[in-house]
């Protein structure tokens, strides 16, 4: 897998999630906003070798945690972990099922991206919950049914956005130079 392509795509995905998505925000329904990064994580997890996919997912999650508005603590410090672990779990799940799905279909990427947002959200909630239990960290505030609905809304909207994004990623798959460890039988789909 070409590192340069991953870096460029990551920069675009981070910039997209921290600025361009404002165009697509549904302000009247709780500011539901689609995300580009879960789509990229799913795409890499579908095609990259297993170890690299896990490492890249962890790294992309850490970069998201360092983005404005994510995991910010007192004094501008960032909490690295909720998205890093969330994307790692997502990549693990995608790696488990990627041999039984049609990988080169946009609809596969869209559905898996929807699932990725929910899995990441659940992992994030778990991490924050565990952190809130610890005596040296403040207790978790917020959450609840409205946030759950918002998570599902974000997941569906991100899945819809994954259709054009997934198409773009699949169109450029030759540039990524993925080498599948399982041979030709795993890549023909």
């Amino acid at each position: 897998m070409r590192a340069l392509i991953v870096i460029i795509t990551t920069i675009f995905a981070l910039a997209f999630d921290s600025s361009f998505t404002g165009i697509l925000t549904l302000r009247s329904v709780g500011s539901i906003t689609p995300l580009a990064m879960p789509c990229l994580v799913v795409f890499i997890a579908l095609f990259a070798p297993e170890t690299i996919a896990l490492l890249v997912a962890l790294l992309l999650g850490a970069l998201v945690d360092l983005s404005p508005g994510y995991g910010e603590l007192v004094g501008g410090a960032h909490l690295i972990g909720p998205h890093a672990l969330g994307y790692l779990v997502t990549a693990l799940l995608v790696l488990r099922i990627r041999n039984v799905v049609f990988r080169r279909r946009v609809i596969t990427i869209a559905v898996l991206t929807t699932a990725a947002v929910i899995v990441t959200g659940a992992t994030e909630a778990l991490v924050l919950l565990v952190r809130g239990i610890l005596p040296w960290t403040p207790a978790l505030k917020g959450g609840g049914f409205s946030d759950l609905i918002k998570l599902f809304g974000t997941a569906i909207y991100t899945g819809i956005l994954a259709v054009p994004l997934g198409w773009c990623l699949l169109a450029t798959i030759g540039l990524w130079k993925f080498h599948s460890p399982t041979g030709r039988s795993a890549t023909w789909r």
Partner: peptide, 24 residues
Amino acid sequence: TSDFADLVRVPVTPFSHVGIMMTS
């Protein structure tokens, strides 16, 4: 992590800036 975030954001900032202007 705040300093680390500053460094990580350096390559992203120009694209985000364009995105914010486009959004507004």
